[in-house]
């Protein structure tokens, strides 16, 4: 009788453990860090366009993985932290690598478009004094 109870308790415990999601902290932070570095590379005036392209392509590979990790991270599910809310409020801005491929534009254009800066708006801009 006691053996049966013990076995049941162990089985119950295992099921409960198996059903508990293990928190996987830091995926969003890693993505934000990589995004910041990528944007810095995009805006870096000290590097040549070819090097910039090379660096951005390399970053894109890392971003694709990091974006997938964030979207699949169960610990972020329903989290009300401001950083999580902001991240999921705008998919096209947070998950730039995926969104740029979906929209068939390069990642720099994708980011600038999301900030409201397009080629047309730049062409229309005039240099003047306020």
């Amino acid at each position: 009788m006691s053996n049966i109870l013990k076995t049941s308790l162990i089985a119950g415990g295992l099921i409960a453990v198996a059903l508990t999601n293990v928190a996987n902290a830091g995926t969003l932070e890693n993505l934000e860090r990589e995004r910041a570095l990528t944007i810095e590379t995009m805006l870096d005036p000290s590097i040549t366009p070819s090097i910039r392209q090379q660096k951005v392509t390399s970053s894109t590979h890392r971003l694709v993985d990091l974006e997938r990790m964030v979207i699949r991270d169960p610990s972020l599910k329903g989290s009300t932290k401001p950083v999580v809310r902001v991240a999921f409020d705008n998919y096209d801005l947070t998950f730039m690598a995926h969104a740029s491929i979906e929209n068939q534009v390069n990642m720099t254009d994708q980011w600038l478009n999301q900030l409201g800066v397009s080629t047309a708006s730049l062409m229309d801009a005039r240099i003047g004094r306020r």
Partner: peptide, 13 residues
């Protein structure tokens, strides 16, 4: 609302 956004993101991904 956040969970709905996350589900949309997953679907889109």
């Amino acid at each position: 609302e956040i969970e709905a956004n996350q589900n949309n993101a997953l679907r889109r991904l």
